[in-house]
Simulated scan of single mutants.
Amino acid sequence: MKELAKQFIGEECIIYTIASNDGSIQGVIKEIDDGGMVIERSYGGREIVNLDFVTRIRQYPRKKNGKKKDIVWD
């Protein structure tokens, strides 16, 4: 998972975990180490997530004009 997650460094992503309250975390992946990843949230906060609990990483979907989609359906 570590090597696959490195493809998303610097990208705004939705990270799905089994440990978060709402099931997903949104933010920019800043760095990835052996056991976790650092995520910078949109409000400026930083969060560290254990890679063992990550089930899916998805680049934030965008419209044709490059703007973020308002609603993301999974």
Results as ranks from 00 to 15, higher is better:
V72I: 15
N50E: 09
I25H: 06
V54T: 07
S20W: 05
F53E: 09
G35E: 06
N65E: 15
N21E: 11
K6A: 12
G27V: 00
Y16D: 04
Y43L: 05
E40G: 05
N21C: 00
E12T: 09
I14L: 15
I48F: 14
E12M: 08
K2F: 04
I29W: 07
V28G: 05
Y60L: 14
I48M: 11
F53H: 10
G44F: 10
V54L: 04
K2Y: 05
N50R: 10
R62F: 10
G45R: 08
G36I: 02
E11V: 02
K2N: 02
M1H: 06
W73H: 01
M37L: 15
I14A: 12
K64G: 11
S24E: 08
I29L: 12
I18Y: 07
K64L: 13
V38C: 09
N21L: 11
T55I: 13
R56S: 12
W73P: 02
N50F: 06
V28R: 15
R62P: 06
S24K: 11
R41C: 03
R46V: 00
K68S: 08
G66P: 09
P61Q: 08
V28N: 13
C13T: 07
Y16L: 02
K2A: 01
K67S: 15
I71Y: 13
D22V: 06
R56L: 10
V54A: 07
